[in-house]
């Protein structure tokens, strides 16, 4: 059982393309932790925008241009704008 699993993963080549994805995923994780820990809501919104852009790169790199476009337009663009408008209405500090 375990032997076949390791064999299965061994045949996956770790090449430059995968490395690029790994770097992007590490960045995503950093952004996500930052969003969860920050108390400044405006900073969270901006970080969320960065998160969406990185995710957009992952999609585009993985050959899903449709999803990448949606992620860039919705996640990084409009959602951030709406978040910021709401934050400008309710105050930027987490209560």
């Amino acid at each position: 059982m375990t032997g076949s699993v390791t064999a299965k993963y061994r045949e996956m080549r770790v090449n430059a393309t995968d490395l690029f994805d790994l770097v992007l995923l590490a960045l995503l994780l950093t952004c996500a932790i930052g969003i969860a820990r920050l108390k400044d809501l405006a900073a969270c919104a901006i970080l969320f925008s960065a998160y969406s852009f990185i995710l957009c790169l992952v999609w585009a790199h993985r050959g899903a241009p449709d999803v990448a476009m949606t992620e860039a337009a919705v996640g990084a663009g409009i959602t951030t704008v709406l978040f910021l408008v709401v934050i400008s209405r309710v105050g930027r500090r987490e209560k």
Partner: peptide, 16 residues
């Protein structure tokens, strides 16, 4: 690639 949703978001962004 693209379509109604993506283009609609662009339109909305332009209005904003």
């Amino acid at each position: 690639p693209g379509g109604g949703f993506q283009g609609g978001v662009l339109l909305g962004a332009m209005l904003i």
